[in-house]
Simulated scan of single mutants.
Amino acid sequence: MGCNNNNNTEKSTVKTETKALKKILFVVTSHNEKGNTGEKTGYYLGEVSHPWDVLHTAGYEIDFVSPKGGKAPVDAFDMTDTINKKFWDNDIYRNKIEHTKQPHEINPDDYIAIHYAGGHGAMWDFADNTEIAEIAAKIYENNGVVSAVCHGPAGLVNIKLSNGSYLVDGKKVNAFTNEEEIKVKLEDVVPFLLEDTLKERGAIFEKSVPFTKHVVTDQRLVTGQNPQSAHSVGKATLNELQRLTKSAK
């Protein structure tokens, strides 16, 4: 109908592409204390801001969910990190993370990927949150991408797929390691050790020496070892999304 009108064709193409770009869901913790230590924690800002910067720049809209909803507690509030500052100074996204959605408000069909940000708080409220685990399983089984960094993989340990298997079973995975937990002297404070639990779920655990970048991608699952890996997790997630887009054409 509008084939001979180049302007209409271009507009139509742009609209179609924009409509096709599904959103990405970031999961952040609601928990603000490291056990009974009295030390405050929350989500690690750089593990939100760096993946956000990569994916937002690529044109994806990002929503935030937390186990309790509302304002998420923040840790590692470092404004000398220019990406942290860029995120924090963005009024739209600052408002989103200070008014996170509750799990029941999320429709998994709206999202092409889900990203679990770390921060020690995640160790207390990610693993046993069945609502968010079900959202992640649905996104994954809709041919989406699941990513997590540092303590974010705490959200992966109990995700089960519709065939009853754990999401991480048989896949290469990494996360904050036992050695790293010992180095920060919290191995007896966290409710479980991520490395051990992921292995128990059948994950093929990979790691580098403490506090060096390590990212692995396996079957639409992207994981990063520590805060140093956050930016690369964003890039690896984007690569997976671009690969999926190409294969769908």
Rank of each mutant, 00 (worst) to 15 (best):
N178M: 12
T237G: 05
P73F: 06
N107L: 11
D63C: 00
I139S: 01
E39I: 04
E39R: 04
D128N: 15
C150K: 14
K199M: 15
I139M: 01
H104Q: 15
E180G: 06
H231C: 10
L21P: 00
K40N: 03
D128I: 15
I114E: 04
V233F: 08
T13L: 09
C150S: 10
F205S: 07
K171T: 03
H56Y: 04
E61H: 05
V190C: 06
E200V: 14
I204L: 14
T197Y: 14
G202K: 13
G155T: 06
D78Y: 08
T177R: 14
T29K: 08
K23W: 02
K85P: 07
Y93L: 01
V149S: 08
A248M: 06
F64V: 01
V209H: 02
C3F: 09
A136H: 02
F176A: 11
E206V: 08
G121H: 08
I24E: 13
K101Q: 10
K249A: 15
N5D: 15
I92Q: 02
V209S: 07
Y60M: 00
G202M: 09
Y166P: 12
I132P: 07
F176M: 13
E180W: 06
T13F: 06
N6Q: 12
F77S: 05
T197F: 15
D109K: 15
D128Y: 12
I92E: 10
V28S: 11
A20P: 01
N174K: 13
N84I: 00
Y43R: 01
Y93M: 01
C3T: 09
R220G: 15
E10I: 09
N174W: 10
K23M: 01
K185G: 10
N107T: 14
L186T: 12
Q225L: 03
V54F: 08
T100V: 00
H104S: 14
N226E: 04
G224F: 05
A148P: 11
K249V: 15
R220K: 13
I62Y: 00
L156C: 03
I132V: 06
N142Q: 15
G69H: 12
V157C: 09
N163G: 05
D53S: 08
L25W: 03
G2L: 04
F205C: 11
V233Y: 06
H31L: 10
L244K: 01
F176Y: 13
P67I: 03
D218V: 07
N5A: 04
I182F: 09
G69L: 11
N143E: 12
A20M: 02
N5L: 10
K172E: 13
N90I: 05
P67Y: 11
K96T: 05
G118Q: 12
M79Y: 04
E33F: 02
I135Q: 07
A230C: 10
E240L: 01
H231Q: 12
S232E: 15
N143R: 05
N8K: 14
K68F: 03
K160D: 12
R94N: 09
G46I: 01
E181K: 09
N6C: 01
K172T: 11
F126Q: 11
V74Y: 07
K85F: 04
A117E: 03
E134G: 07
L186M: 14
T100E: 03
E181N: 07
K171V: 02
E61Q: 10
I97G: 00
G121Y: 06
F87Q: 02
A20N: 10
